[in-house]
Design a protein around this nucleic acid. Structure first.
Lengths: 346, 346
DNA sequence: TAGAGTCACTTAATCGCTAAAGTATCGGCA
DNA sequence: TGCCGATACTTTAGCGATTAAGTGACTCTA
């Protein structure tokens, strides 16, 4: 006996496949007695419906996908876990694709996901390609943009309030007495732009004129990691007069930047205060515990799942809010703790 | 125009669906001219085959799954990325399931994956349940055990040489002069057992008698993280005479243990040397850069994919080696660097 | 007591594709 | 000329489910 089908159960019980199908799906159009017999036999044989076959006729697979550029950064892993946990509760299973920040791969993955017949997807896009979104619209597959907004694409977006992140982090550096604050930038996408904008605004509202030479961007493209932070910080430290505070686009950059600061013989936070963004795991146990902006990824994942589910439930009714922002939290640790301070610990 | 089917292309071109199918699959039983026309039209309409429908008739989906207990630890994420990259090259796509170390969830996930019709799976099991493996055998779905061996289940296994890990780490502590070496243990599964065994053997072959009270295991079950390391190390440090070296099952435990050592007012590595296992990211930038055993996860993932592919290709012929071990590498950093030493840096 | 309505099924079509079997056309060869 | 074997298709029969429509057997009502 290889694999059990409805046909087998129907034969065993002397009923039609249709009846078996109805029993399985709790269709009212079936008698209680027969339903029990069918259900009992199903349990006995450990029957599992063939989801492919079901999907073929219903047109729905109960599978949604999450497309992310990266899985090594805890950020997307945490979102993935929260999302999938939430979706599982509602009978959906989630499939993850990662694209290594490569629009080509992303294109291929999305094509493949569509071929597979997923019901919807959540996507943290790589590149600024809009073709694949047009494709999704054509195919009528609902999707949610995550973390990265795409100009010109009308779809629900959920992410952090990046401008607020930048503002919060920069203001914190100002509060602890930094006068010349540098920024190590993120990739050329909405979070990078938003945080940079927040940084600029915070400076301006403190009466400090933003200086272009204090803003550096890693040379290489791709995900921002440790090495980029090191390299960028070295360039930043060479600028005169030297910065006394650095706001980094994310925590790995900040870790790299700290290494560069130490390598230059400077002290953290006395000479240069550092703050990152993302509240990386183990950020508290680094050589210099890192101040950061917590992005609240768990809530982000759960809300993303919620938005997806609501777009999935009602086709015609107006969907969820166009833009959802998750509120950040400032986490002050010793990498920026220069003066007595109302700090929230982690 | 919603979604393009073979039927549409066939109608447009005045040929039969069968012909279209043959053109798509490069069947020799089709003329070059027609094939070109079909392919051209497919490109025009951006046709994508419905994989569900195809799977229904062929019985194969070209989807494999990876079931892991956890995605936050970089260990499994790295494996996932390496595996999926490798599998993608061979036309397979990979689906990830995580089980939060919960056998119940694992059971459900596997059932679901089978319903979905995956062709094979790689599994780092949670618990010691063997029922689901029996189910897989019944269904004739090939699988590979990853990282965790299961007694009584006959299937290809790939993982680290855990006994060697334990041996290597412990011998290193002995080499740097530790006399009383403690161990903070892993979950009660093959890696935990193997590393403990390696620890014991290393002590014995150095003429040190293993002492039970120097072996502690976190109270709580579940994945071993920072907090468990902290709690366990506190208990370990209370034992007299105090340990002067600790080998931890994994890096997060070791990070926690380091915190506990520092909190107790002791110095690392002078008073207590610490070594972990897994070569966590950022392990080099911790407050105390952490010595560790690198498990070579990328190779692990690639080889796992290779094994899976080879079992997938030939059904009848004897499969790959029953057991594959990936070779580790000792990484010495300051958490254990007490004496001049032939060290390999990272 | 006929007609309508309900209940509990069965039948049959269908989803999009593959694959085996069938058919028509043609060139080559004895 | 007639038969064979390619070649290049078309036809047909599923894969395992769902679902609309059809069918008896009852029950109830006027």
């Amino acid at each position: 006996m290889a694999i059990v089908r409805m046909k087998d159960i129907a034969r065993d019980l002397g009923v039609s496949v249709g009846a078996v199908s109805k029993a399985l799906r709790n269709d009212p159009d079936i008698g209680q007695a027969t339903k029990n017999r069918v259900l009992h036999r199903m349990k006995e044989l450990n029957y599992r419906p063939n989801l492919m076959a079901r999907a073929l006729v219903t047109g729905r697979t109960s599978i949604v996908a999450l497309v992310v550029p990266d899985l090594l950064s805890a950020f997307f892993s945490e979102i993935a876990i929260a999302m999938s946990t939430e979706l599982r509760k509602h009978g959906y299973s989630m499939l993850i694709s990662w694209t290594a920040e490569d629009p080509e791969i992303q294109h291929g993955e999305i094509d493949h996901l569509l071929s597979l017949g997923i019901d919807a997807l959540v996507i943290a896009t790589s590149g600024n390609d809009t073709i694949c979104f047009r494709r999704l619209k054509e195919r009528n597959v609902p999707f949610v943009l995550l973390d990265r907004e795409v100009p010109g694409v009308k779809a629900p977006y959920i992410g952090g309030d990046d401008e607020l992140f930048g503002n919060m982090a920069t203001r914190h550096l100002i509060d602890v007495g930094c006068k010349r604050i540098g920024h190590i930038g993120g990739p050329p996408m909405s979070p990078g732009f938003g945080r940079l904008e927040g940084y600029r605004r915070a400076l301006q509202s403190a009466g400090i004129k933003p200086v272009d030479k204090y803003i550096v961007t890693p040379f290489e493209p791709g995900p921002r990691t440790f090495h980029h932070g090191f390299e960028s910080a070295q360039r930043l430290l060479a600028v005169n007069p030297r910065v006394d505070g650095i706001f980094c686009f994310n925590d790995p950059l900040a870790v790299g930047a700290m290494e560069a600061v130490l390598a230059a013989g400077l002290r953290i936070p006395q000479d240069v205060a550092i703050i990152g963004c993302g509240n990386l795991h183990l950020g508290a146990t680094l050589r210099n515990p890192l101040s950061t902006i917590d992005q609240n990824t768990k809530e982000l994942g759960e809300k993303a799942a919620g938005i997806l589910l609501s777009t999935l439930r009602k086709d015609s009714k107006k969907g969820p809010a166009r833009v959802t922002m998750v509120q950040p939290r400032l986490v002050v640790r010793s990498s920026s703790n220069r003066s007595p301070q109302r700090s929230k610990k982690t």
